[in-house]
Each structure stands twice: as C-alpha cells, then as structure tokens.
Design a protein around this nucleic acid. Structure first.
Lengths: 213, 213
DNA sequence: ACCTGGAACTAAACGGTGTTCCGTCCCGTA
DNA sequence: TACGGGACGGAACACCGTTTAGTTCCAGGT
C-alpha cells in the first residue's frame, strides 16, 4: 500500500535483526528514516503494530524455507528436507526463529493477532501433512498424525530453544550433531519396525568404522 | 545479609509473578516499599542485579520441586516423579518456569552470571543421574545418559514452551494428557525392548476399554 | 489562477523508565 | 559532643511510547 509503511517495516526488520526487540524503538526507527518519531504514527498505529508486521515477515521467511521441502520426490525425502530446513532456519536466523515462538506478553499485547496465530497453525498443519504421508507410506507407525507431529515439533523446538538460550555448552557444529542424533533416536521410536531396521542398516553402511562401538 | 535487600527481592518476586518482567520497574518496586527509586541502589547495583536474584529464587523453587522425586524408592519411580514434578512446576508456576529458560538478552545482559549457569547445569545433571540409574536398572536402553537426557529434556521443554506461548489450542487438562501421551511414546522408543513390552501391558491393564481401539 | 482539503511532517509536551549526583538526616561510636 | 557513615529524598539526565497542535506542501476542483 503505502511506500513509507514498507520502508518503516524494512527498517524495523533490520533494526530487530541487528539489535533485538529492545533495539526497535520508535525514535531510533524514525532517526534512521530521517524523520521524527510522531511521523511514524501516520503509517503505524503503534509500536506493537510495527512489531506484529516484523513477526509476519519472520513467518513468511520461515515458511519459504520450510516449503522448499515439498520439492522432495518422496514422503520420506520431504520429511527429512523439512527437518533440515527447520534446523537450518533456526541456526541461520536465530532472531527470526525466536520471533516465531515469542509470547504475546513480550510484544506487549495480551493475544497475538488472529492472522499470526493462523500462520502458526499453517506451520503445524505442514508438519501434520508430512507425518501423515509418511504413515501412509509405511515409514511412520500408524496413529493420529497430529499427535506424532506434536511430539516431533516439541522435541525440535525444545532443543533449539535450549541451545539458543545458552543451556548447552556446545558450539553450533556440536549442537547440529546432537540435534540430528537425538532426532534420529526419536524417529526410530516413531517408525514402523520395518523402517527402523532399514534405518539401522543405512546407518551402519554410512558409519562402517563406528559400527562396532 | 541486609534486611532491606531481602525485602526488595521478595517484593520483586511478587511483582514479577503478578505483572511479569516489564512490571518490575525500580520505581514501582520503590513505591511498594515506601521509598524512592534511588534508595534501591543502596542495596542493588542495578535492575538487572535484582532480576538476576529473582531468577535465582526461581531456580531454588524449581530445584525443590524436582528434588522431591528422590523420595521415590526405585530408579523408575524417581524418573517418573521427576517428570511429574517438572510438568507440575511448569503448569503451576508458568512465570517462574519461563524465568528458568530466559535468554540473557531479555534480562538486558550479555551473559548469565556464572552461578545461575551452574544452577542450570545442576538441573541437567539431575536428569542425567535419573537416566543413568534407569539404564543400569535395565529400563532404558544403554547409551550415553547425557544424550538420552538431552532428548528427554528437549522434548519436555519444547512442549511446555509451545503450550505457554499459546501455540496449542488446548486447555491445561488437554495439554497434560497430550504431554503424558507424547512422553510415553518417546519413552517407549528409549526403553529396552523388555521394558517397552511391560509398559504396554501396564497400559492395557489401565485402559481395558480402549485396548481394542 | 485561486482556493481548498488532506496527507505528511515537526515541535512540544506528558508521563513513564533506569540511573546519577548531591544534600540531608539520623544513629552509633569515639 | 563531635564525627563518620549508612540510608534516604529531590532533582536531574537521557531515554522511551504516545498525543496534541501547528506547519508545509501538493493535487484537484472551480
């Protein structure tokens, strides 16, 4: 719509990515745009509305990174690529990732806008779809795909969140390894017995030296 | 040490629990204590130092709730009770739980104080101990207990965090059920085959009607 | 060409924040 | 009685989000 509104949003995203939430002040935003703070209120109702738009940008970026997984040719490949996309996004853009799971309280509002909540639902649905098609393909155990995806999502988000908040004494490479190992262990539990066997065979083929450890 | 310092901390805890982080301002704190804001600086170096002490209080409360699990008579019972204590604490005191996993950035400091990081390590070690003794008892699969506890911790924290931030459209009772189901599914994957069989038998005995579903 | 309306902006101000500086009071001790 | 020091209050600084009122400027209609 408005050109200036777009500039404000772009500047707010830059500011957030470099300085964090506290760094996004109406005055600093105005300073960088060469205007005074009240001028921003012609284009945005309040600071929270600016931040809400930044969250929307984060969701769009995240969705783009996730939906690339649909280029995979099989259910299994799509699930794996989705997992890789998730981890890559979380590690490459920590601040944007944190924005996806921010509590309304931290934004200074009682509830998230409905359209942002809907974006969260869409992401959840994406995972449910990935799980369901893997169940249909005999890769994952039968069961409610919403329950299985809840388990997977919780596990992934929990590890990333603990890492981002400094609760693991690891560098990024070590965390990547731990994440993949942990996810593998969990997936084995969620897989059908046949696929779990196949997974172990593939792992043994990929790690011949460690196979005896 | 100082009497007034204790009063400030107690008041800050009350204020945080009822109003959240943003609600803890030096001026409001002083108002409630019947003094002016600068007076607080006789007893605390800065607002961040007050908040750091609130975090320490949260850890002490959390640890007390967790360590009660040691009253259990067997490794299995101690692990189960620890899990229940974790979930209970997270649901009964959401604000205190969130403080345990807060990022330094949200407190306005670059890194958490060493002693607070150590408190986090102690909690992690507690879980490692619970896992190890369950492995020794033949309940959990053999393997590095640190890796297994990482998986369990990540899973539990992720679900709680997503629930607290409003990413699940459930009430507390529904979340409790989902949490226990998800944890059960994950534990089955981490258990020894023998124990997993026993778990399923116990579940069937507890849910005779649903056994056919 | 003139007027008008509205969009976009600025300056000033209000009430809030964390924090510092300085003066004051009071109490225990020499 | 004098002094030192801890505890406090008042004023101030620099920041914040936001509101109000006044200014500028340009497009459109008469």
């Amino acid at each position: 719509m408005s050109d200036q509104r777009d500039k404000i949003l772009a500047c707010a995203c830059d500011l957030y990515l470099s300085e964090g939430l506290e760094g996004v002040s109406m005055r600093e935003l105005a300073r960088r745009l060469g205007v005074t703070a009240p001028a921003l209120y012609r284009h945005y109702e309040s600071r929270e509305h600016v931040l809400a738009d930044v969250v929307r940008s984060a969701y769009r970026e995240f969705a783009a990174s996730l939906y690339r997984a649909l280029e995979g040719g099989t259910p299994r490949e799509r699930l794996v690529r989705a997992g890789e996309g998730y981890l890559d996004f979380a590690l490459r853009h920590p601040r944007w990732y944190q924005l996806l799971f921010i509590s309304p309280e931290q934004l200074g509002i009682p509830r998230l806008p409905d359209d942002i909540e809907a974006m969260g639902c869409a992401v959840h649905q994406f995972w449910v779809d990935r799980v369901r098609e893997c169940q249909d393909a005999g890769i994952l155990r039968a069961g409610d795909p919403r329950e299985v995806s809840l388990t997977m999502w919780g596990h992934a988000h929990g590890l990333v969140s603990l890492y981002h908040n400094g609760h693991f004494r690891m560098d990024e490479a070590a965390f990547r390894r731990e994440f993949l190992r942990s996810a593998g262990a969990m997936m084995t539990g969620l897989s059908t017995p046949e696929f779990a066997t196949r997974l172990r065979e593939e792992f043994a083929a990929d790690h011949p030296v460690e196979a005896h450890g």
